[in-house]
Design a binder for these strands. Structure first.
Lengths: 207, 207, 207, 207
DNA sequence: AATGAATGAGCTTTCATTCAT
DNA sequence: TATGAATGAAAGCTCATTCAT
């Protein structure tokens, strides 16, 4: 029973729970559902998670970590416009993966759950604060470089970017067959328009 | 007991339910909570709504109607750029009203509920389809007039607009003290950038 | 509002209740069902019957009265065999009437209800005691006249007769299409066999 | 937890339920009553029966099985008259047992419940059809052997026999102190009268 | 006298959690 | 350590009855 064994049990439970939550929602998923999905016993699950809510929190937290990782990658880009474009393509593009559908459904639930669950709220907030900071820095850098209009509030801009991501997650959860590419293309046009220098220029051949 | 009396009872119950749902979420709100909040009896509530879920659906539906009304107003604007700006100011600006906070919290819950409740899903979808159509038309009109870049997919653009609204609702639900004005200003800059004619722009003195 | 008016309201309510009880049973019939069936208001019904249980009791009592009336008619017959045969034909034959189906279904319910409701039990018992007494007298008379075997216990015989009636009501309630004539014919053969005098004789051309 | 353990829990619940149902009737018995009678918890009962109605159905079904078993034993008798007499003594004689009183009260309830509950109706019907078939066969055999009058409809006769049983159950439920022996003796006289050969009868020294 | 909206105790059922084995 | 039967508080909902109008 070394640590990796414990960890793999946690994984097993979390995976089963994600499947259940995506299928039925947090509140309609019973511990028995998770028990059935894992193939473990009720007692076993309580050995790894002290309460149902802890499974929710663990999943929310994991989602946050993954998002942060995606962001961190894009952060480094030297050119602000290029960095934004890469962010768009990586963050939004990931949503084209049909395997992520379960994830999207759970994410939307987490967003609602945050309003009633302080632990989840904290996770959701810190999962948003970090990207906002990164994006705001990017905007500020862009403004220093004269690429981004100075009249934009950096944090406001960052929040709009986050919204563009969040809204896509929502809409995709509701319409799994949504045309993500058309969405991404539009966002790229916006980025171009926003980051173009003083002179009129032709859109770069994005994507 | 005339009809307006019955209608006012429905209102009373829905208002109480909104308060409860905003406070505790759909699933953690018990019928007893709503009973206590209304001051009516359990039986009285069931005279107006056959089940708890019907209260949820009624509220979701009402939210949808309000949104649609806001959209319909802005729709008529002669100039595409002006229409978009008005839409932004009316739709987003409304969220500055602190009284709407309860509403925002419930909306986020409705979004999650849609994934598990077909009736709510239908309401949410039709509440999104209509704005998307209106916005896509606006984009198409803008493209004909040469104001909006032809390379944008009209529906994709519409969905980005919706996302900008949805994301703000989410973020405001999580951060009630969020600076909505900074957000709106950024969006207006985006609109300007997007809808400016071929010649060098001067930002309109909006807001 | 003279007495006949009050009486006709009671009738109306009882008829509606019988319809409901036959359809759904006592316990699954709500006062609202009866309200809907009568077309009266809830308050109006409570003006005529102080409680739901009183409607049940009134119906049970009425059934009892009708049975007693049937019995009383047959009672007078001069010849014991003829009297028994007439009883069989009148009591059982009545059950061929399809209009009585509602009645049969309610009767079976009353029988069960008696076990839990002292008032109904009293009604059921007195509704059985009277026929038993009449039949037992008939048997005793038959025994004195040498027509009925002396070895038969008069009350026991009376109870068997009652059972033959009760069983038919039950079976008809379960199988509305039951062949009552075949049943009645068999009972008539039994009566013949039981009441035939010392010498062997041919069955009378009954029915 | 082996199977016999689970089975004994089911028994325990059914026994408690029979006690409650005999005491208060199906509809007036609450799950809490059964909980109290078993000494188990509410949850435990729902592990063995998915709903209250399933307990009713299980009990009805068990009653049916017991009846069928009694019938099956008597079926084989070589001599038709003897078979009928044995049936009478076994089926009716069993009702002398005071321990069966609970059972009788529940049976009467099941009879009423059948009218409103399809599952129970099916159980009741199949519990009657089988005995009817067996008895009708017996009558037919008796007719071939010249012992039973040919003018009797076999199924009609069978139904009268069933009625004689059902009526006794009813009457005993209403009058626990009923003289069953007098009843049985009368039925035996009837059987004798019905099955006697062409020649003058002498009552057999039954019982 | 009649109405029907309101009452609220009480129903069946669920399910997160525990703990004897 | 693992099991899964048992727990029991609490949920959503019903319905006989009342009473202000």
């Amino acid at each position: 029973m070394d640590e990796s064994y414990l960890e793999s049990r946690r994984r097993q439970i979390m995976d089963a729970a994600i499947t259940c939550f995506a299928r039925e929602g947090f509140h309609r998923t019973t511990m028995q559902d998770i028990v059935a999905e894992t193939g473990l016993s009720a007692g076993a699950i309580y050995r790894y998670f002290p309460a149902k809510e802890d499974i929710v929190a663990a999943i929310a937290s994991e989602h946050h970590s993954r998002e942060a990782a995606v962001l961190a990658e894009a952060k480094a880009g030297a050119d602000v416009g290029a960095a934004l474009r890469e962010l768009v393509q990586v963050s939004l593009g990931r949503l084209t993966d049909p395997d992520e559908q379960r994830w999207r459904r759970v994410t939307v639930q987490v967003w609602g759950e945050a309003l009633r669950n302080d632990r989840v709220m904290e996770i959701v907030r810190s999962g948003l604060d970090e990207p906002i900071d990164i994006l705001a820095d990017l905007f500020r850098r862009g403004q220093l470089e004269g690429i981004v209009p100075g009249e934009i509030d950096a944090e406001g801009g960052a929040r709009v970017c986050a919204a563009i991501f969040q809204g896509l997650v929502l809409q995709q959860a509701w319409y799994p067959e949504l045309d993500v590419d058309a969405y991404v293309d539009t966002v790229l046009v916006l980025v171009d328009r926003l980051t173009e220098p003083t002179k009129r220029r032709r859109r770069s051949p994005a994507r």
